[in-house]
Design a protein around this nucleic acid. Structure first.
Length: 604
RNA sequence: GCCGAGGUAGCUCAGUGGUAGAGCAGGGGACUCAUAAGCCCUUGGUCGGGAGUCCAAAUCUCCCCCUCGGCACCA
């Protein structure tokens, strides 16, 4: 393949919230597609930085801590460490998985706030907000419900009634109640002053930002952003809250000590602060600029559809409002930050036809499912069923059949049958061949072409399609084997059988690379069967970072011994005579009763 | 109510102007290297309904029906 300049690719994933475990819907929604993209670009030789971390702040964490009788820090650390354990077990290779509760993130977030203030995009405004006398704290609207004063339906939110659809005046809500368990006090409206970001002023910029990307952004994403904004406009939005837990608002005025930056205003800033922290812990303090100042860099935000607004409106608005002022305050140079290239948001994954619900245990939890199934089996099903265009469904019976009929039968069996046949009949070595036949060259050409077609799908973040293309190529090799039947040929002409096996091995060696972003664990094993001495991927590890807020665990990724290899996203160059290692099955076939057993676990 | 996304073979879904597709499930066959896997052939659809534009529509326009999601100070 032609030489090319490496691209700088930032893979930024939505920040998991520290009040619940991660389930398969969260994985397929953002972490897994991000990891597949990151691994592909690494194989391609691009400079990849994949980051995110735990969103530690916000009211729900505070309330979860109250309920558990623990400190907010304990609660956030509990989930944070669990997330890191899961990402190692399922191979989500963050270069840095950190947290919003770090000195660095505080500083970067506050700098963004100050830059927006400097540029005139923030204003203060006093509004009534619900206050719980029982909890002695302000509560977000979602925690208040009452009776609608228009249609008399119960369960109306304070600003809108779902029953009649009317927008409500919170002050008129009848019999307002706190939805917090154990809070029997009657919430009341109290005036409170907050900072707002003037999104209406930034609306033309946001529209232009989205229109510039409209030819490749997903239709579902544009529908929830561009078309919605054109229809409804953007309104100013409060970016501070009355809360003890969170990032202090960097204004030295009295009365602001009890207020914090709104979680989504600051969580998205993590896409900037995490690369900065990554540079610090890697001893390359300025390296983050390669993904944030370099206008050629491409940033991807992998998120679920629930976050589309924050990533297609609020975050670009923050960045455009900041302009060069962030760097001016942060580093003393007036250069602008770049804007995200694409926001490939996924829809939701349901479970057995119903919406996933953590509180009702209608969920397949990431760490739990990995105690019974291999990570690549889970990754495979989550990828073929990824909700790229619309909501999808995790169905246990389908999990079993896709595992058995596709992963095991088409791909795993292909690798195993060819390697085992070769190992047994050619003394553990790749057969020697003098020349190849037209059919052999034809197969290898088709496989080689896959690096272009599958690569194009991966670059466009059409992951289901990319995996489907790869699986089709595996079928092509199965067909080739059937036509050439080396198990028959070997009885009369071992050289001919050797050509078939050599060709098939080379094809499998190539397919291994194409499958690797999706199935990294088994492809790494297969890589080992072929006798390679360096791995396909680097390794994950954790370390503890200390700062003025204390310390936090981070997950990292070390490229290690493959750092100096040339890009691996290219056709196999397998040499005749290469010594193989003892092969074995890559995947496990699942029993038919698995679906029944798993369904019995749900909802309990 | 408003906004958005969907409604294509029994099931899960791909397909945005040019003779209806894939995988699974069902039926038949040849083979045996392989986790009884793989391969070949095959049954099956008036592309939610109606009207329109066009030489030509699953694909564009309009109306209607149904499902799901959101309704932004909730993450």
């Amino acid at each position: 393949m032609e030489a090319r300049m490496p691209e700088n690719i930032l893979i930024a994933v939505a920040w998991p919230y520290a009040n619940a475990e991660i389930h398969v819907g969260n994985l397929t929604g953002s972490h897994l597609p991000g990891d597949i993209a990151a691994r592909y670009h690494r194989l391609k030789g691009n400079n990849v930085l994949m980051i995110t971390g735990t969103d530690a702040h916000g009211t729900p964490v505070t309330l979860a801590a109250d309920k558990a009788g623990k400190s907010v820090e304990e609660v956030y650390r509990f989930y944070h460490e669990g997330f890191i354990d899961l990402f190692q077990k399922i191979g989500i290779t963050y270069d840095l998985y950190t947290t919003t509760h770090s000195e660095n993130h505080f500083k970067v977030s506050q700098t963004i706030f100050l830059a927006l203030l400097k540029n005139g995009f923030l204003f203060k405004k006093t509004e009534p907000q619900w206050f719980s006398p029982g909890l002695n704290r302000f509560l977000p609207d979602r925690y208040i419900e009452g009776t609608c004063y228009i249609c008399s339906a119960d369960g109306a939110r304070s600003d809108q009634c779902d029953a009649c659809g009317n927008v409500l005046d919170p002050a008129k809500l009848v019999n307002p109640k706190s939805k917090i368990e154990g809070d029997a006090s009657s919430p009341e409206l109290r005036d409170t002053e907050h900072y707002f970001i003037d999104l209406s002023k930034l609306e033309p910029d946001v529209i232009k930002y989205l229109k510039d990307r409209a030819d490749y952004m997903r239709d579902t994403v544009l529908g929830e952003s561009l078309r919605k904004i054109e229809a409804e406009g953007l309104r100013p939005r409060a970016i501070t809250r009355d809360l003890d837990w969170g990032i202090p608002v960097p204004v030295g005025e009295a009365g602001w000590e009890t207020k914090k930056l709104y979680v989504w205003f600051e969580a998205v800033i993590g896409y900037l602060s995490a690369p900065i922290e990554w540079g610090q812990v890697s001893g390359q303090k300025e390296a983050w600029r390669e993904w944030w100042i370099n206008p050629e860099a491409k940033q991807f935000n992998f998120i679920g559809k629930d976050n589309i607004f924050f990533h297609t409106s609020l975050w670009p608005a923050e960045l455009m409002g900041v302009g060069s002022a962030f760097m001016e305050i942060f580093a003393g140079e007036e250069v602008p930050l770049i804007l995200p290239y694409d926001v490939p948001a996924n829809q939701f994954m349901n479970l057995e036809g119903k919406k996933i619900s953590g509180s009702r245990n209608w969920a397949v939890w990431g760490r739990d499912v990995l105690t019974r199934y291999d990570p690549d089996a889970v990754r495979y099903y989550l990828t073929v069923n990824m909700p790229e265009a619309k909501d999808s469904d995790w169905d246990w019976a389908e999990f079993v059949t896709r595992n058995n009929n596709e992963l095991v039968a088409t791909w795993g069996n292909l690798a195993n049958r060819v390697l085992a046949f070769c190992y047994k009949n050619w003394d553990g070595r790749v057969p020697d061949v003098d020349s190849l036949r037209p059919a052999d060259l034809e197969l290898l050409a088709a496989i080689e072409n896959g690096f272009h077609t599958v690569g194009a799908e991966l670059e466009a973040v059409r992951l289901r399609s990319a995996l489907g293309e790869t699986m089709k190529l595996a079928t092509l090799v199965n067909q080739y084997l059937d036509v050439n039947a080396p198990w028959s040929a070997i009885k009369t002409d071992k050289a001919e059988a050797g050509k078939t096996i050599y060709t098939a091995l080379k094809a499998i060696d190539s397919l291994k690379v194409m499958f690797a972003p999706f199935l990294p664990f088994t492809c790494e094993r297969l890589h080992g069967f072929f006798g390679y001495e360096t791995p396909l991927f680097g390794e994950q590890y954790t370390e503890t970072v200390k700062d003025s807020l204390g310390e936090h665990l981070v997950l990292r990724y070390r490229v290690g011994q493959i750092a100096n290899l040339s890009p691996q996203w290219k056709p196999s160059e397998l040499k005749p005579g290469t010594k193989l290692n003892q092969p074995g099955p890559l995947f496990k076939k699942l029993e038919e009763n698995v679906a029944e057993e798993e369904r019995a676990r749900l909802g309990k």
